[in-house]
């Protein structure tokens, strides 16, 4: 009898607290979503475009970031020399933050945001420059740098943040360059659907 009562009380308490917090704060905390096995083409056959608001791969112009190999584009700025790159039709930009993903709760200052240019991407390419490291001797593994969080201004001016978790199919804990299949992104993201500058 006693335990049943206790359980019910606890349940009521939890429900009450949960509803309270929603009422207290108008800011909607952006949910963290995980995308697995997003396939990025490895050759000149184009880019895989992704929309944060739809949480899906898109083929239209309302994409936010696009992947090919280890290169990540943002939908804002100028198209580079590569003919297969999609045109930048949005107002996207990226600011790179070094922190724990959950601790990035506010959008960084405006001047830290960069757009793609004809010669330089907002997320720099090359090992150790952008989101990954790669060592030519030894493991030959594309390893995402821990604590690299990319705050993205989406094509329509909203904000999202993402961090790359793996570059290999099914995100093996210890990828092997002989057996693991490269070009499959796993990443966390949080999308702020309101025009808020917090996550």
């Amino acid at each position: 009898m006693n335990t049943k009562f206790l359980k019910l009380t606890l349940l009521a308490l939890v429900l009450f607290t949960a509803s309270c917090s929603n009422d207290d704060n108008e800011t909607v905390v952006a949910e963290t979503e995980t995308v697995s096995n997003l396939e990025a083409p490895s050759t000149a056959s184009g880019y895989t475009k992704f929309s944060f608001s739809k949480n899906a791969v898109v083929t239209t112009d309302d994409w936010d970031i696009a992947f090919r190999g280890t290169t990540i584009l943002v939908n804002g700025g100028v198209k580079g020399s590569d003919a297969t790159e999609p045109a930048r039709t949005g107002q996207g930009a990226v600011s790179i933050v070094s922190d724990i993903f959950a601790n990035v709760t506010t959008v960084p200052a405006n001047e830290t945001f960069k757009q793609d240019t004809a010669t330089l991407y907002a997320i720099p390419t090359g090992g150790g420059n952008g989101w990954y490291t790669y060592n030519v001797v030894g493991l030959h593994i594309i390893a995402p740098i821990a604590g690299k969080v990319f705050v993205v201004k989406t094509h329509d001016g909203k904000y999202a943040k993402f961090e790359v978790l793996s570059y290999y199919k099914d995100a093996p804990a210890e990828p092997n360059y002989m057996t693991s299949v490269a070009g499959y992104y796993k990443f966390n993201f949080a999308y702020q659907a309101n025009s808020n500058t917090t996550f």
């Binding site: 490895s42 090919r68 190999g69 150790g128 790669y134 030519v136």
Partner: peptide, 15 residues
Amino acid sequence: DTRVVALKSNGQNVF
């Protein structure tokens, strides 16, 4: 040590 000196059009690096 090695470093990346260019990005190839196949998406890979030149070290």
